[in-house]
Every structure is written in C-alpha cells, then in structure tokens.
Design a protein around this nucleic acid. Structure first.
Lengths: 241, 241
DNA sequence: ATATTAAACGTAAATATAACGTTTATTTTT
DNA sequence: AAAAATAAACGTTATATTTACGTTTAATAT
C-alpha cells in the first residue's frame, strides 16, 4: 500500500491540507561562573539580521524533525549524543512576520569548558549569556527560553538531568554549584552531600581535584545504570528550598 | 515592518524553506469502570478509512496550532475549557505514507459521565477503550497514546491533574479510584485519605453521596486556588507504590 | 435488636528532610 | 617546625512525611 501511495502527490491524497513552513530552534544551556547560561547567536540572514536569537533552521522536506534538531547541534558544537529533548512547538499564526512558520523547539544541556564548541561556532557570532542578562531576542525566542528554563527546572527537580552539565569526572562541590545555578538558590552543603550520596548515582574515584583548595576535593563519576533507572523512575532533587 | 513583509510571499522571504503538512491529533483520557480509557474514532477519510485512530485535523494556514487543537476538542465534546496540553510533535519523514505530515499531539482529560459528549460524537463512530484493550491504530497513533500515558503518569505524580477526571463534586472514594486507574495500582485507603486531606486541595461539602453504600460518603469540591498553586509548585502524589 | 458493609478514623515504626555544629587534610605563613 | 588558614568532609538532632497496619462508625438490611 505504501508504494501505491508514494506515487501520488500529497495534494491528491490530502486535498484539504495546506503546507506550512516548519523550523526547529534550540535552547542550549550551560553553566558558566556558577550561573546558568544560554547560547545565543547573532542572526545572519534577513529578515532581522544582526539581532540576537536562538540557533535554528528550517526542517527539510525529507528530514525527520529530530534529525534536523540534531543537525543543528552537531553543526554548532561538533558533538554528538548531547542531551537533547523536544520542548514545545510554537505555532501561533503571527509568531513570525516573515510568513507562517511553526517552530519546534528543542532544549539541550552541555558542559561549557575546554574546546567543546567547534570552530564553526567561533565563525558565527555566538555568545553564552547568563539568564539574568538575556537581551531582547527575535520573534518569540524570549518566550522559548522562558519555557525552556521552566521545563529544565521541573526536569531537574525530579530527574537526574543536572549531571548532563558536568564533565565525566566531577566533585561534589561542582555538582552542588550546578544545582544552585539551575534553581538559583543556595543549597545546604551537608544536606546536599547526604542526599546525593544516598541516591546511589555517584561512584567515588578515590582521587582528588586539587585545583580549588588546599585539601582537594574527591572526584566522582556518574553510575550510568543508576542514572537511567532514576531518569525513568524519578528521584527527588529538592534540597530544602 | 510587519506590513512591509506582509506583501511579500514567503518564498521571497525564506527562499530555502519548504512547506510541510501539519496536523494536530488528540489523545483524550477518561476514567470509566475504574479504568483509564482513551477515546478512539473510526477514520472516515481515505487513506485508511475504516481503521481506528485518534481524532485529528490539519492545521489551517491562518489558524494557531493551539486553536486547531481546541477546535477539535470543541467540535467533538461540545465543551470548552477542558484540560488540554501539548504533548509532543511527531515529525518523522515516513510517519504517514500519504505524504510528509507532521503531527502535533495534544492530550486532554475529561470526565466520562452524563451527556458531556455532544451529539456530533455519536454521529462519528467513537468509542472509549480501556488502555489494556487498545486496538492497532493507524500511523503512529499507538506510539502517541503510549507517550501520552507516560506523560499523564508523570504529570499526575507531581501535579494535581487527577482532579480533571472528576465532576465538580466528588467523594474520596471516587478520587482514589481515579488515582488507582491512572497508576494502575491499589492504594492504601487510610494513607490516601491522610495525604489528600493534608494537601489542602479539598473543601468538604458536608453532604453525602448515598449511591454506593448504606453509610454514604462525604462529597468534596476542589479548592481552585490551592489547585493552581500546587499545579505550579508541584506536590507529591505518590501513594506508596 | 442484630448483622452487614462501605466509609471513616487512628497509631506506631521507619524513613526522609531541614537546620544546625564540628573535624580534617592540605597549603601558606610565621 | 609550629601555627594559621580554609575548603572539604563529616555528624547530630528535631521535625515532617511515608508506610503499614488495626479499629470504629453510620447507615441499611435482616
């Protein structure tokens, strides 16, 4: 049956349907200077060239939507297998004055450090911006970021996504800073430790990171199996706020 | 600027973009016979006429996506202000053999009772189906339902959405049956009571529903303000399972 | 009166959370 | 070599929540 249908144009099969333009946009989060940041770009194409925006692209006719979102991320960061999830589809008629364009927004978590942003990023005008210093973005992109933040916070509250913002090896101090950045609160050191160590998510590595103190602080890695379980089952990451 | 752009065709403004067909589909949940049910329809149009599916419709060129989803619900049930949220956009190239069609799925909660499904439903071939008796649906609709169930369970676990499946006045017994239906578990009666009454969500009405027992069971209504607060803040609706 | 039964009420142990104080390992300073 | 400094690690106690059960009550039916 599929092959039978393939030879018909869509207009014949769905005569009442009208084609719309479909884009994907990416909200990319990272933690820098103990603050949650978003990756922004200076738009290169008209209309609205020169303004700040999220990264995005049109979805090609023969391209899965998810693939389009991955393509953007890959092009931008050079990395694959980043944490990326669909956020929401923005579909108001007037959201883009340039035409009827839907945007399927995706959100990603990435650790800002080392050389993980490819040269291509440096060729674009890109910058990390802390949440409290977001400029006016084009179209409804501010709304997208707002929704993404809300979603990130909900996710991070009951699922172990916070770890996606850290390197493979990390200290409890770093982990706490990530959670403080996500929720924008101060967390009690001793309660944080207790709860995280109880979660079974960490594997102690019996070595120390000496870069931030005289005493040094123990390094841990994430127990992947436990991570998947808690991602699935849920776990409470409230820390007394 | 907007008026300037309005006179250009979208091809001039976004020359690289290709129009795709966009549909919305609705996963509508209700509780019947203490079981979570989904509302299914016999598809009337080709291709695949005669098969069971979710309700859906194409998004019109001058119609907000959310409006399209509301339109479907309204047409179907005659009710407005139902609980409805966007679930996920299904965007694989080959999800519909009839053409490149994206589908933006929405999920709804409705209480099955009285005459709340309009005549229009009765004219369509529609039926409520318990989750464990879902037939094969068209396209990727089974996947949509699966995702919606997962999402409903996550939502119901930390937000007070369960109440959307009940009438304005309800008993603790009914409420418990709703939660048992959603999570497909048995909940301890006494612990359920304690936790729900502690949540501040209920207003006692000092009258009884006598239809299910000699003793009768007290009726309650939902404290709307508290509902909104907990919808926002989150509240734990785990009941020891 | 007595039995019946769904609904309502109660308690105690175990676990988790919240709010604090103290000690340790290392480097820097004297 | 001892003392000071300090980030990191460890510990305690009160309160609240969760879990797992047992008991009583309000109405109808016998």
């Amino acid at each position: 049956m599929k092959s039978e249908l393939k030879n018909l144009s869509k207009e014949q099969i769905y005569p009442s349907a009208e084609g719309l333009l479909v884009a994907v946009d990416s909200i990319i989060f990272g933690v820098r200077d103990n603050q949650l940041n978003v990756l922004l770009f200076e738009r290169e194409v008209e209309p609205l060239a020169g303004n700040w925006s999220l990264v995005g692209s049109f979805v090609k006719k023969n391209e899965d939507v998810e693939k389009a979102a991955s393509r953007i991320l890959k092009t931008l960061t050079g990395l694959e297998n980043l944490f990326m999830e669909q956020l929401y589809t923005f579909g108001n008629v007037n959201r883009d004055p340039g035409g009827r364009v839907l945007s399927i927004a995706y959100w990603s978590l990435i650790r800002i450090d080392q050389n993980n942003l490819k040269v291509s990023v440096k060729n674009h005008k890109a910058k990390w911006v802390p949440l409290n210093k977001l400029p006016k973005l084009i179209l409804d992109h501010n709304e997208m970021v707002k929704k993404a933040i809300k979603h990130l916070r909900e996710q991070a509250r009951f699922h172990p996504v916070g770890f996606e913002l850290l390197p493979k090896e990390f200290t409890l101090v770093q982990l706490k800073l990530v959670y403080e950045a996500i929720f924008d609160v101060r967390i009690d050191d001793r309660n944080f430790r207790k709860k995280i160590l109880n979660s079974g998510l960490l594997t102690g590595l019996n070595k120390k990171d000496m870069s931030t103190s005289k005493k040094g602080s123990f390094l841990y890695s994430l127990n992947e199996e436990r991570y998947r379980l808690l991602q699935q089952r849920g776990y409470n990451f409230d820390f007394g706020f």
